[in-house]
Design a protein around this nucleic acid. Structure first.
Length: 422
DNA sequence: TCTGGGGTCCTAGGACCC
DNA sequence: TCTGGGGTCCTAGGACCC
């Protein structure tokens, strides 16, 4: 039987924040989304206090003050760095692994010959904690979906000690399925959960028993795969080598509503810079670009509007100037005066590896002038944004709020923590 | 006053072709 | 005027994930 483990970092962002600020270990911690808008990570204590995932900050301010909850703006440079450390510990522990997200990793334990898998998992857990400072939970199952499910239970149950193995305890599977509500199954989101519950399919166990034809019709092949995986039939294998991205996006909600065209243009041009940088870093070029913008959906009284447009490049590119010029044309076309714009974004589409981008037949190849490479090198050395094209102005009113940002402990020399002895 | 950002995959429907 | 089946490609939108 196949044996998958899912290793999941506990409250990952909150754990990262605590890593370099031990004083946070005695306090509940929450981490906020971009713009300090809503809660995206909570320590256990914060969960116990009733802070919901995704709760808007302005609605829980009272709770935060009352319980002296530590608040942090999200710091992805820090989390990405810690994630790499955790993944390298996990990756070297098992015959095969797949980094599934910033805080999750599937392991292939098929070929791992150990007498007691639970014991082995406990040791991996301790080792990860010791080497990286990040606590993890481990679920083991015959499919990825069941490993996920086991992981949830491992995290919730006190006596599991952070590890639950459903492969070597097949008699636990049914109880595990009964204990899990259908909406907590991997692959079942809000919409489908509501649809299923309406039809008295409430637990993962109910779902696993649903007839194939019905599931196929209501939820397509994706839903059917999930049902099969709950029954222990492998539909999703381990994807060891990560496939290159097909799209890259840079979008932001502005710190405030913006009416001024140049102001919006400014923001958009900085998204272009960032998105182009990303694809160059991945060694890719984009075949097309899309721009979108919208007003504030929460400002119900204000007139709502959204706009978008796209352009295809004659020759795929990662040059900020090409992309910027195309986006500017789209922007002029879709801009509407008199609306309070709140969010915009730039998507780069049809990404392909640089080098074998199909040139159009009659296009003379222009040699790259090296400007982009030079800019990237300067920024890699002296920090993002050191060298930029003159596409944007200095005052950036659209910029997001990050009022609770922790230092870049691991990614900036100037902010590295200092240990004083004596 | 204040509600994130960045992805993937699948499906339905339209345009077009033989 | 009306009449068919079968295929591909593309796009928009909807579902999901973290």
């Amino acid at each position: 039987m196949a044996t998958f483990a899912l290793v999941d970092c506990n409250n990952f962002y909150a754990s990262c924040e605590r890593l370099f600020q031990p004083s946070l270990r005695e306090r509940p911690v929450i981490v906020l989304s971009n713009n300090d808008g809503c809660v995206i990570a909570r320590s256990n204590e914060a969960k116990t206090l009733g802070i919901a995932m995704g709760a808007p900050m302005f609605k829980i301010r009272k709770l935060v003050e009352t319980h002296d909850i530590a608040v942090r703006s999200s710091n992805y440079a820090l989390y990405g760095d810690i994630s790499e450390r955790v993944m390298s510990v996990l990756g070297s522990s098992a015959p095969g692994h797949e980094i599934y997200s910033i805080d999750e990793c599937f392991l292939d334990l098929d070929r791992l010959a150990v007498p007691d898998l639970t014991e082995w998992c406990r040791r991996l857990r301790n080792q990860t904690l010791q080497w990286t400072g990040i606590p993890v939970s481990i679920g083991v199952g015959p499919t990825k979906t069941l490993a996920k499910l086991a992981n949830r239970l491992a995290k919730k149950s006190a006596k599991a000690g952070g590890v639950l193995d459903l492969v070597h305890h097949p008699d636990w599977v049914e109880a595990a399925l009964r204990k899990t509500s259908v909406g907590d199954v991997w692959g079942v989101g809000r919409r489908w959960a509501a649809m299923l519950e309406e039809r008295a399919i409430v637990t993962a166990h109910d779902f696993a028993k649903a007839p194939d034809g019905w599931v196929r019709q209501r939820m397509g092949v994706v839903g059917l795969r999930t049902v099969h995986e709950l029954r222990g039939i492998v539909c999703n294998g381990l994807e060891e080598q990560q496939t290159p991205r097909q799209t890259t996006c840079c979008s932001r909600t502005f710190g405030t509503v913006i009416y001024d065209k140049l102001e919006v243009q400014d923001a958009i041009m900085s998204f272009v810079e960032r998105a182009a940088e990303k694809v160059r870093h991945a060694g890719q070029v984009a075949g097309a670009v899309q721009l979108f913008m919208r007003t504030d959906p929460f400002a119900q009284a204000a007139p709502q509007k959204s706009g978008s447009g796209s352009a295809t490049f004659k020759r795929a590119t990662s040059d900020t100037r090409d992309i910027g010029a195309a986006v500017l044309r789209i922007f002029d076309r879709i801009w509407r005066e008199g609306y309070g714009w709140r969010k915009a974004g730039v998507l780069l589409l049809d990404l392909a590896p640089d080098g074998d981008a199909p040139a159009s037949l009659f296009d003379e190849m222009e040699a790259p002038d090296g400007l982009m490479t030079a800019i990237d090198q300067i920024n890699a050395r002296y920090g993002r944004g050191t060298a930029r094209l003159g596409l944007t102005r200095k005052d950036r009113q659209w910029q997001m709020r990050r009022e609770h940002l922790s230092p870049s402990f691991t990614t900036k020399w100037s902010e590295i923590p200092v240990a004083k002895i004596g």
